[in-house]
């Protein structure tokens, strides 16, 4: 069973996001970067399938040199091979462009199953996984919470509003993950030691023989942070009357009355 996991490195959830000078991207310095949590579910599931059915798992990502850390972490979990597509043109692509590049790359590789996070928590676009399946012309089952493999087919469970849906497809197929699919393992220290010795394949689009994507068909024009809630104030008073007095005074101070 040859399994490919599509993954992305994203800012850690505890990061404080600030909008960059251009108003349409975020400041990236001082951020901690991690594997997109939904992709972690995909990695864990892929490794479990490999552990049961044999085969190998390859993690594929688009990113800069620091994305090697994400691949190393995936390898420490149990992924066998890693491919980093490091090319400014690939980084500048929109979701469909990204999917095209990934589909073209996967087109030259062997696979029985492709796993991807339902979405990356940084751009929340939900597009890449299904679009890759579309471009590869293979079945796509999204938001999977459980899967079983038998006879060249995959049966999946999906949580839908008010119930569970059971979906089956022939391999090769692409799945996207939903919370509850599994609990990703800790990377073990021996696992990290082994991962440090593995080679990561880094390729540009030219190396892969993929034409640069034509200009993005969609474009981010602006980003805005949510309005921050101002801190509330608790008025302390011994009696309801005292509290009411304080409230009146506070409202007067704020020019409300």
């Amino acid at each position: 069973m040859e399994i490919i996991v599509l993954m992305k490195q994203v800012p850690a959830t505890e990061s404080f996001i600030e909008i960059a000078q251009d108003g349409r991207s975020i400041k990236t310095e001082d951020l901690n970067w991690v594997i997109n949590p939904y992709d972690e579910l995909a990695l864990e599931e892929a490794i479990r399938i490999k552990e049961t059915h044999g085969g190998s798992v390859t993690a594929v990502t688009i990113g800069q040199a620091m994305a090697q850390d994400a691949i190393r972490t995936a390898m420490a979990m149990g992924v066998d091979k890693g491919l980093l597509i490091d090319d400014p043109k690939a980084l500048g692509a929109d979701s469909l462009g990204t999917a095209k590049i990934l589909a073209a790359t996967l087109g030259t590789m062997e696979y029985d199953l492709i796993l991807a996070g339902q979405r990356a928590v940084d751009d929340d676009s939900y597009v890449v996984g299904p679009a890759v399946a579309q471009y590869l012309d293979i079945p796509c089952i999204t938001l999977v919470t459980k899967q079983t493999l038998s006879d060249g087919k995959i049966q999946c469970e999906r949580t839908i509003d008010g119930g569970t849906e059971f979906v089956e497809a022939a391999l090769p197929a692409l799945l996207t993950t939903q919370r509850g699919l599994n609990e990703p393992r800790y990377t073990s220290l021996p696992g990290i030691m082994k991962a440090k010795k593995k080679k990561i394949d880094t390729q540009s689009l030219a190396d892969l023989g993929i034409p640069s994507p034509a200009g993005a068909v969609s474009e981010t024009i602006a980003m805005e942070l949510p309005v921050t809630k101002r801190a509330g104030k608790i008025l302390e008073g011994d009696t309801p009357e005292a509290k009411a007095d304080l409230l009146v005074k506070a409202l007067q101070d704020a020019n409300f009355i």
Binding site: E183, P184, R185, Y186, S188, L189, P190
Partner: peptide, 10 residues
Amino acid sequence: KKKFEPGIDL
């Protein structure tokens, strides 16, 4: 727990 990872002796 299920995903328990024991410490190791360095």
